[in-house]
């Protein structure tokens, strides 16, 4: 994330150099860090797939300047993100907001692990009992097993 610091600062230098826009206040360290973090989570719309921190595109430069101006103006991170979303939609957010349509996106990974672990444990348990047929059984066990397995297809094992 921090690699974005450079890009943001850099673009300001260009912006001031080119446009001569001197209306920008220097930000303190906290403000700079916030600007960097915000720029790294926003997508540049004109680029193929880059954050506005990474991009050289003019729109990205403008939006970085917007972030700067708004932070200097005392806006909170949430307000700045709102500003972007009202103009460009959720598309600008590289960290999609959690809502009904993105629930599966955010919960999916946990769900995969959960289902995976449950299936794994059940598999391990049933497998152990099924693979028991490896071991020589006593007559009584054999009978019991046959009763238990009645209906189920007997499985070969090596």
């Amino acid at each position: 994330m921090k690699r974005m610091i450079a890009s943001v600062l850099f673009s300001w230098a260009v912006a001031t150099g080119v446009a001569g826009a001197n209306d920008q206040k220097e930000l303190d360290a906290v403000g700079k860090a916030r600007a960097v973090a915000l720029a790294a989570e926003l997508r540049c719309l004109v680029c193929q797939n880059q954050t506005i921190a990474d991009s050289h595109a003019e729109l990205a430069v403008d939006l970085r300047r917007q972030i700067h101006v708004q932070i200097a103006g005392g806006k909170s991170d949430a307000e700045i993100v709102d500003f972007m979303v009202t103009r460009y939609g959720d598309f600008v957010l590289y960290r999609p907001p959690f809502k009904a349509t993105t629930a599966f996106l955010w919960l999916g990974p946990a769900l995969f692990v959960l289902v995976g672990v449950i299936v794994l444990l059940r598999f391990l348990r049933t497998r152990r009992t099924r693979a028991q047929s490896d071991v020589p059984l006593t007559e009584a066990q054999r009978k019991m097993a046959a009763e238990l397995l009645a209906g189920a297809t007997p499985r070969e094992s090596q």
């Binding site: 446009a19 719309l45 004109v46 729109l59 939006l63 103009r87």
Partner: peptide, 13 residues
């Protein structure tokens, strides 16, 4: 000139 209104309209191209 500075594209500020463009940003308000969400212009990207």
């Amino acid at each position: 000139a500075d594209g500020r209104i463009g940003i308000d309209f969400g212009v990207y191209g």
